[in-house]
Nucleic acid binder design. Structure first.
Lengths: 175, 175
DNA sequence: CGTCATTCAGTTGTGCACAACTAAATCGTG
DNA sequence: CACGATTTAGTTGTGCACAACTGAATGACG
């Protein structure tokens, strides 16, 4: 497939140590090495995310859902009717993404949107009967995903923890 | 910002052991538990990918590059002139994504596209002088990213390995 | 040589991500 | 009560991901 999937040359970068002092952390790699590493890492994450997307796409095709639509349905199945704002906070999505997505879910007959009487700015998203029933069919999806990862539940949980820490750090760094 | 950034409840899912025998692997969790777990995991990956995207967006703003454009430039900086097909294989991107992206890089004066004389179907992507010079400024990016992750180089390498295994398994499962 | 399958880049259409903005409703404070 | 700031959904515009398709060039085979 790929000409050099994990082309991590075992040869260490620059034999001549740069003027860095005796720092225990290896953050004093030469910039060019870091650039190469960056290539590997951001490619890895990008590729993993897209590979996951592909597997979900297959698994969700029967349900007629996309991956982000599935995320929204998971929130509604677990939490019940929620305002758009709450769904956005849960999934880190803003109205620019959610508004058209919810419109498509509504057009598919899975959800209903209602202006709140108490606060006319807010729109509460409800499941329709069809939307609620879809959960039964969705129950088969996670096992397919788990099998596709080739990981155990424990490994998945460990990965999830790692990703959680990472996301927290990145969010903190990016404001 | 977010109300539940790393909502990873330390309590394992089902304290009450389901009727599973002494299986070491926990793939016999009830479906509803797997659905909840799936919520956590796919959300985690999605969120991590987008958080990374945000940090790269900041770091690359100065260079006038998006994250996928940066990936393409990394390939060209490392490998030199490459046909579109080779770039796509390296990054797992098809022509539907690459063609407009490369057009934008060309409009920005960073690359040049030339029909191959030997095979008129193929288009070889070259760096312009500006594109080659941009590498100097890009050298500062990876360190910013590494700092944002709050991880050591070793941890990043471990994560990369984990993601690589995962992507391999997912690609195998999805064909 | 002629035909057909394959390869390669590009185009079209749908959907998501995100920035920047709009518009309406609500709230706080004077 | 009046007025300005904030909150909430929605819209617009740019860019990426991917499926499905087009069209030209190439290669294989009879």
């Amino acid at each position: 497939m790929t000409p050099s999937p994990t082309a991590a040359p075992s040869g260490p970068p620059a034999p001549s140590g740069p003027p860095g002092p005796g720092a225990p952390d290896k953050t004093d790699l030469p910039d060019s090495e870091l650039l190469r590493l960056d290539h590997q890492v951001c490619f890895s994450l990008h590729a993993a995310s897209r590979a996951f997307g592909g597997v979900y796409r297959d698994a969700l095709k029967d349900l007629g859902l996309t991956y982000p639509q599935y995320l929204v349905m998971l929130v509604l199945w677990e939490d019940g009717p929620r305002p758009v704002k709450a769904i956005g906070e849960r999934l880190r999505l803003d109205s620019g993404t959610l508004s058209p997505l919810l419109k498509r879910l509504e057009a598919a007959g899975l959800v209903r949107r209602e202006r709140s009487a108490a606060d006319e700015r807010s729109v509460t998203v409800h499941l329709t009967d069809d939307g609620a029933e879809l959960r039964e069919r969705a129950l088969a999806v996670p096992r397919r995903i788990l099998e596709a990862t080739g990981m155990t539940v424990e490994e998945v949980l460990a990965l999830q923890g790692l990703l959680g820490r990472l996301t927290g750090a990145l969010d903190r760094a990016a404001g």
